[in-house]
Amino acid sequence: MSFLAALCLHLLHFLYSTSSTLFSFWQRHTRIPPLALTAARAKLPKHLAIILDILPDTQQTDILETVDRATEWCRTVGITQLTLYDRRGLLHSFNQQIREHVVQVYPLASDSGESDLEYPLTPPPSDYSISRPMSPENSVLADLDVSTIHVVSQSRPKQVKTRRNVVHKRRERETKPLVNPLTLYLVSPKSSKPAIASAARSFVKLCRVSGKAPNEFNLMPEQLQLLLEGEQGFPPPDLLITPPRASHTGAELPLELYGFPPWQMRLTEISRGKFDTCRADNVLGNANDQSLIDEVTFRRALDEYSGAEMRLGK
């Protein structure tokens, strides 16, 4: 009986996979293409987060190019905050290189003399940081492992050759004015649950210093919010783009958050890169492109967000 059930289950999976593949094929050929990057949308996220599935052998140039592209698209459409996250923490380990790259692309003094870059506003990730007032008489220290880079260039970015399609990129940039400031957050798995544990350790230290009894310690969500979303943390994103993933058989795997910081996910709209643009090694990109994110996925996520309704419990 169990053998028969197992056989039936495999048949069911086969039928499901076949119908999913056909549906995906049909969708690919009937789907309306997303609006252009600069098209007017009813609603735009202020803060966009992207989960990148960076493999351990990903080249540094690919990562820098991804940061470069995402930054450029956000500034073009008017998104003012961008969070980049990867589940292996590789993005964060390239923190210094990304900072240096951003300095190159958005230099302190541009050709027109209009550029300005605030760099760096936060210490390197290895530093113990944060000193936030929780109440007038005390302060809390916690290690949130978030790197913040402010890009406030008022002119077009300087060209930095990172990849082969530089000429194409230059042409693109020359036709689009980039004037919007952007704050870039580099977030790692340590900024997730470990950051909340770090906050708890900080509260214990603080209570011990001030001699508070256990029952005298009361915590409000607003206090934790102030700490995790404050200067050394990062604010909650309005929209999160997650990468599609394929199994060993090439079938699509279910949506996951890969350890993205839970506190900030409260009201975040979740968009997923379409499976038909998924590269075989599980990243947000397309088969002919080695970058970690493609513009179509970005534009499609903005279109989805534009149509989302927010009710906030009402």
């Binding site: 996951e256 958050l257 350890g259 409260r266 979740i270």
Partner: peptide, 20 residues
């Protein structure tokens, strides 16, 4: 709706299948 709306954020951020 493709949001978590403040539900089980801690529990679902790792290895949880999200189905909308």
């Amino acid at each position: 709706v493709r949001r978590l709306s403040d539900f089980l954020l801690w529990q679902c951020c790792e290895n949880t299948q999200l189905q909308f």
